[in-house]
């Protein structure tokens, strides 16, 4: 049952078709894991907390660096040197005390990935490397958890919603580790608002999933090009030879 304060706070959510007070109560009972509290994780976690998601797990092993602040809007100048999860959790709690924020300062590994994702309803992949993404992908497949993949580079970004056993997974699409010679954000840069766009879309997918709204980006890789201000969709199929999800 929503309180008077909550009814007012979430009025614009509650007014939405097929959300209502029941949808808001569902959000308040939901558990979302945001892995990475940088360029993607900042807007994703902010919008999820603002929407009234009741439990947010924030995972990151990094500390805030001066070079992060151009895009990682959870962190401020005075946070430099602090663990990102401590800095991020503080901002989210300040935004909405309805949201319980669990700060998990650790690197995702093959040993801990299953445990880290286990207690959550949906996982948001806001990491900055494919090694961790593959671990998350496999953990989400083994535990049948939806995962919202996002990635950015330079002026572009992409995202896809992975529903294990129903649509393609990350390995269906990206089979091998990237070549060490391939471009990275550290080399070619990243426009700060681009992860803002993609992270906001990731949070939208989470809320759609939690409330059963609309059509998810399942089997659809949505790509964004800031330079032409255009979105393109690439339709994808599950790969029957996928090393991660073919057995499902």
């Amino acid at each position: 049952m929503l309180t008077e304060t909550q009814l007012k706070r979430y009025t614009r959510n509650i007014l939405l078709p097929n959300v209502g007070a029941a949808g808001q109560e569902k959000l308040l009972q939901s558990r979302v894991l945001v892995v990475g509290s940088g360029g993607l994780g900042s807007p994703a976690a902010y919008y999820l907390a603002a929407a009234g998601v009741g439990h947010i797990g924030l995972v990151d092993s990094d500390k805030v660096d001066l070079s992060n602040l151009q895009r990682q809007i959870l962190h401020r100048t005075e946070d430099i040197g602090r663990p990102k999860v401590a800095s991020g959790a503080e901002k989210l709690r300040a935004l909405n005390s309805d949201t319980e924020v669990i700060a998990v300062e650790k690197l995702i590994t093959g040993e801990n990935a299953d445990d880290v994702v286990r207690s959550y309803d949906v996982i948001v992949d806001c990491t900055d490397n494919f090694s961790v993404r593959y671990l998350l992908n496999d953990a989400c497949i083994s535990q049948q958890k939806p995962m919202i993949f996002g990635g950015v580079l330079s002026f572009s970004g992409q995202l896809m919603t992975i529903m294990p056993g129903e649509g393609p997974c990350l390995r269906c699409l990206f089979r091998e580790d990237p070549s060490p010679d391939a471009s990275s954000c550290a080399e070619v840069g990243i426009l700060g608002a681009v992860p803002g766009v993609i992270g906001a879309l990731q949070s939208t997918e989470v809320i759609k999933y939690l409330l059963g709204l609309g059509n998810l980006l399942m089997g659809r890789l949505l790509t964004y090009d800031a330079l032409t201000a255009a979105f393109f969709e690439v339709t994808l199929e599950r790969d029957p030879s996928c090393p991660s999800c073919a057995q499902l």
Binding site: T127, G151, S184, P195, V234
Partner: peptide, 22 residues
């Protein structure tokens, strides 16, 4: 589609770099 596979006429091909930043 692996680099060693052969295309068929009319195949629709998409190429991506690693868009892996976060």
């Amino acid at each position: 589609f692996s680099f060693d596979q052969k295309f068929h006429p009319g195949d629709r091909v998409a190429l991506f770099p690693p868009v892996g930043g976060g």
